[in-house]
Amino acid sequence: MECEKASALMMQYMDKTLSEADAAKLNSHIKGCPVCKEEFMVYDKILREFETMEVISAPDDFCDTVMEKIRALDFKRPASTVKDSMLCVIWGVFSVLLGLGLLASMYKDTVIEYLASTGRFDLFLKTLAPVTEYVNLFTEGLTNTFTSLSSGLSALVSPVRLTLLVIFAVLAGIQYVIYKKNKAEI
C-alpha cells in the first residue's frame, strides 16, 4: 500500500469509519513505514486529546442572569411570521410572473421569430397559433372597450399603463427581497 492510501485510511480512522479489513491493511503498512507510523501516532494522540479535553460548563447563575436581562428588555415579538412567509411567497411569485409576462409581451415578435427559426418548435407554434389569435382578439376587444371609455386619453393609455406595470413589478420584487431578508436575518 502507498503512503497516500495510508493517509486516506488515517482520515477514516479519525472519522471512526475505518473497516476492520482496512485497519489491518493500515496496520501492516505502518509497521514497515516509519514516516506513516509517526503520522499515525500523532493523529491518534490528537484524537485522544479531543476525547479527554476538559468539559466546559457555563457558570451556575448563567440562566438566571440571562432571564433577568431578557425581562428587563421589555421585548415585543412581531405578530405573525406565517403571514410574513405567505406574503413573501405571494410577492415573489407575483413579481416573477408579472416580470416575465411583461418581457414576453414586449419582445413577443423576437421570441416567436426565434422559435420559428430553430424549426424545432413548429408543432408548438401551430398549437399556439389559435390561442394567440384568441388572445389577440380578446386583447383587441379589451383595448377597444378601454379606448372607448377613455376616448380623449387613448393616446396616453398604452405607454402609461406599461410604465405603471413595470414599476409595479419592480416594487413587488423589492417587497419579496425585504420579506426574505427579514426572515433570514438574525
Binding site: A58, F62, T65, V66, K69, R77, P78, T81, I186
Partner: peptide
C-alpha cells in the same frame, strides 16, 4: 465567553419566531 454567551441567548430569544 460568558458575556458573549449571554448575548447569544438574548439574540436567540429575540429571534425564536424565525
Amino acid at each position: 465567553a460568558n458575556d458573549l454567551a449571554q448575548e447569544v441567548f438574548i439574540k436567540v430569544y429575540k429571534n425564536l419566531h424565525k
